[in-house]
Design a protein around this nucleic acid. Sequence first.
DNA 1: GTGGTATTCAACCCCAAGGTTGAAAATGTG
DNA 2: CACATTTTCAACCTTGGGGTTGAATACCAC
Lengths: 136, 136
Amino acid sequence: MSDDRLSRVFAALADPTRRDIVARLADGGDATVGELAEPYAVSVQAVSKHLKVLEDAGLVSRRKDAQRRPVHLEADVFDLMTKWIERYRREAEDRFRRLDAVLESLDDERGDPLDAPVGDQAARPAGASRTEEAAS
Amino acid sequence: MSDDRLSRVFAALADPTRRDIVARLADGGDATVGELAEPYAVSVQAVSKHLKVLEDAGLVSRRKDAQRRPVHLEADVFDLMTKWIERYRREAEDRFRRLDAVLESLDDERGDPLDAPVGDQAARPAGASRTEEAAS
DNA sequence: GTGGTATTCAACCCCAAGGTTGAAAATGTG
DNA sequence: CACATTTTCAACCTTGGGGTTGAATACCAC
């Protein structure tokens, strides 16, 4: 469970330590594993694991510099998230606006509400209209 | 670990089924637990648990309508995520621009690079400048 | 080559996450 | 009241995530 890209990204950011690492890379620039591990109470190995998670999610990449592995933040992934979020935020707001319109029209002329089958609050269960396919 | 708000939100969205539920609420409007569970292969109880996770994260709320519990998408949380993402995306880009400037100035006059201690690519380990406090 | 430093690999705990089934709770309906 | 419907609660199982420690790897410095 959770092997698609978005799942990995969200899962990676669900951990405060990993979010903090991202934050530090964002305003501190690239850093080595040791540097990144220093502030935390946990072992270097643990941080190394965290970095692997971030890497698998595509949030960071590791360069190779002698025995050091400087970690670099890949800002592109943010776009992926933003896109997902914005898409559904938008839809939710649109639907909301449509609902407002319906309520208004109901209030006004007290008759059949346009064409949008919005909401169905506590009315008949509708039952068949669900669209599928998890987020692209 | 992971009891703060953002952690719960990201963790909630790390599951494809839960993301799908959010997506369906976003463009289908409120729906009951049964309706939401119908498309999936899993039990209704499992979906009920998913909804609890979403609710604890503040992504949805449940109204009370007889024995049904219509689920409603709380679009506000999206702002929280967007804010977090945008903040660090911005910083990363700023840092990037600053780096460009430094490289440019190095290229130009071949001397001490302004004041911003950007990047330190493979130079001395710097060692002490890390700022703390995980994302608010 | 010997040694020190930086990072990962491997084996191992512990516990929370997602799933199951079965029963209980809450509420409309004959 | 008896019953069907919708949802949650409770107990349980299995898997994976985050942590640990100890060894292996890779590289620079002497």
